[in-house]
Design a protein around this nucleic acid. Structure first.
Lengths: 213, 213
DNA sequence: GTCTATATTACGATAGAC
DNA sequence: GTCTATCGTAATATAGAC
């Protein structure tokens, strides 16, 4: 096995996956080009050969996350039927995208608005949230979701629950089918797939934590 | 009215409240001493007269947040009675502290672990989460909270919902009794007090979004 | 307690060889 | 496509006058 350590040259895509990992560990602002070069195993100037700079990496990353999220709203399950069923589809789809594109969505949910790219990402995110809130409102009007809590507030709390996945969910297999419910500091190793996770979110959010009497 | 623009000299405390505001707008790593000096209206070197540096401001801020959160666990409502009632007390108390110490808790929930101070804060936060998860487990054992969703997972989702308040909740009165449910980009102005907010969280989390049949 | 001036280091980005 | 060397800027922090 000659030259076993040889690695393919970077593309903007493959470099992105390295960069996003570092961004999520150190924070975007806390990451220097030096950090990126160390993590990628190439020099700073080599990175500039592939991308224009740090912000382009951020833009590519949040675009990927946003494409995934808006894609859920365009699925046929989100377009026809009772509003509550479309709502459940969107919730499950959001969890699916969060898990499938975990590092990209994580980065998206953490941008603060210091640059044009970040402000653009925040605006698109608000647009997504707004469309979900409209759907929630429809389900209230159809009598399936409760209206005694203000719909926008309820939507924010629901998505606060869903989005918090990125704070602790970690994939643990290379096949993309498994994950753990273990947080960064825990040693627990029980497995939770994206589907099981979506089941748990739907059950908790729609039916609550309390045991029914 | 002579010298109306005169302001009291800064103390570490009063400087902290300015700094935390900037940290939350720009992110801790994205905030320079220059940004802080502009916001405080004094020079960089004057800031160093009050505190040792940026990280001391961070340490003071997250300490205040952690003291508030752990304080809830020490209240008598969290110590006696059925586990589900103690759980509700802790949930309401967490919302109360989140709102009362909003900028400090916001900062706490955003630290990434780049410095010793941040790692210490993250460790104390995990300790808090662990104690809440234990309480949840008790309520499951007593038959009042559902056990078909893994308790640690359920606790994480519940606290994901609660903690997401810091992403959009803003006080809008100077009296500390009112607030809005409006996000940074919304123009809606409906008022939601901390108590009403806690009511909404408890109803949604414990009984779910769905209309009961 | 606040200032101006500055030391020192780290950053993002570029030049030019191979 | 990758490297070393370096530019110009901005960062944290300190010195010393008032």
């Amino acid at each position: 096995m000659a030259s076993a350590a040889k690695r393919d040259a970077y593309t903007p895509e493959s470099l992105l996956s390295v960069a996003v990992g570092v961004f999520n560990e150190r924070g975007y602002d806390g990451t220097s080009m030096e950090h990126l070069s160390k993590a990628a195993g190439i020099s700073k100037s080599s990175i500039y050969h592939h991308v224009a700079g740090k912000e382009e990496l951020l833009r590519r990353a949040v675009s990927r996350a946003l494409d995934g999220l808006f894609g859920v709203l365009d699925e046929k399950g989100a377009a026809h039927g009772a509003a509550i069923d479309r709502m459940e589809h969107v919730v499950r789809g959001t969890v699916r995208v969060l898990v499938a594109e975990l590092p990209y969505v994580t980065l998206l949910l953490r941008v603060r608005g210091n640059t044009d790219t970040e402000r653009w990402a925040m605006e698109r995110r608000r647009e997504f949230d707004h469309r979900v809130a409209d759907l929630f409102q429809e389900a209230v009007a159809e009598g399936d979701l409760r209206g005694d809590v203000e719909p926008r507030l309820a939507t924010r709390l629901l998505y606060g629950m869903i989005n918090s996945l990125v704070e602790w969910y970690r994939l643990d297999g290379g096949d993309g089918t498994g994950g753990t419910a273990a947080g960064p500091g825990d040693a627990s190793g029980e497995s939770t797939s994206a589907t099981e996770l979506a089941d748990a979110v739907v059950r908790l959010a729609f039916d609550g934590l309390r045991v029914k009497g």
